[in-house]
């Protein structure tokens, strides 16, 4: 119980959000209609991805200050998990967009551009890791790239949409929103637990991946990863 209580909480919260997400009451909004339920799945997945990207950047910083390979391993695993959450986030977004905007990908939206750039950044990060054979060099170079790329992605996702004239996303530029005015209390009661649940789930995945990679290292090198 000491080690898995938060995993249990994560499962309960996510299950609850799926059940309540499909059965609960939602406000009737123009255009959005029932698709507003996507809020319970799409947005928490992005939050989990952002959190994992932050974790990855944090461990890269930690690696650069200590040069311990286990920190680099955690950073790369967190980047993987972030990528894992980006994909369903993208798919739920595209399904939703098909029914509200009429097509799965709209070019003129700063948030979508930002997310696409972020995904390319992390693919390049994996490519960079694959290109350098030496462990220490790989860890050092990819940590530097990770920190730089995280900062630029952060600029792109957080600051650029505020500069750009309008986003098609709900809540921007007078679009019907699940923003602060339209989300009623019954929706909040599902949305916030869903966010917590998915973020906990992402840490669980990180934990498993990290342990797996450590074991793999031990098998290959016959010593524990320092």
């Amino acid at each position: 119980m000491k080690h898995f209580w938060w995993k249990l909480i994560s499962v309960i919260l996510i299950l609850g959000s799926i059940i309540m997400g499909f059965l609960g009451e939602v406000p009737r909004l123009n255009i959005l209609n029932e698709t507003i339920r996507n809020l319970y799945f799409h947005v928490p997945l992005w939050f989990a991805m952002l959190v994992q990207m932050g974790v990855s950047c944090f461990f890269s910083l930690k690696y650069l200050s200590s040069y311990k390979l286990k920190n680099d391993l955690t950073a790369s695993c967190a980047a993987y998990v972030g990528g894992m959450f980006a994909l369903p986030g993208l798919i739920t977004g595209s399904i939703w967009a098909t029914y509200t905007w009429g097509k799965p990908w709209v070019a003129d939206d700063p948030k979508m551009q930002g997310v696409m750039a972020a995904m390319i950044v992390y693919m390049v990060y994996y490519l960079l890791r694959a290109l350098i054979p030496d462990m220490q060099t790989k860890a050092r170079i990819s940590a530097v790239y990770n920190i730089f790329a995280f900062c630029m992605t952060f600029v792109f996702i957080m600051i650029y949409p505020r500069l750009a004239p309008s986003s098609l996303h709900p809540g921007n530029g007078g679009n019907p929103a699940f923003g602060k005015y339209d989300m009623d209390n019954s929706m909040r009661a599902v949305f916030y637990p869903a966010c917590v649940g998915w973020i906990l789930m992402s840490f669980w995945l990180l934990n498993i991946l990290n342990r797996y990679k450590k074991l793999q290292y031990k098998l290959e090198h016959h010593e524990n990863l320092e």
Binding site: V124, I141, Y145, V155
Partner: peptide, 27 residues
């Protein structure tokens, strides 16, 4: 500098810089 450390070529350089330069280019 990162690209030169990979011992690789010009292509990795453009790959590395493309995504990080997108916000600058858009502005």
């Amino acid at each position: 500098c990162i690209a030169s450390k990979t011992g690789n070529n010009y292509s990795i350089m453009s790959l590395l810089s493309m995504p990080v330069c997108i916000p600058v280019l858009l502005l």
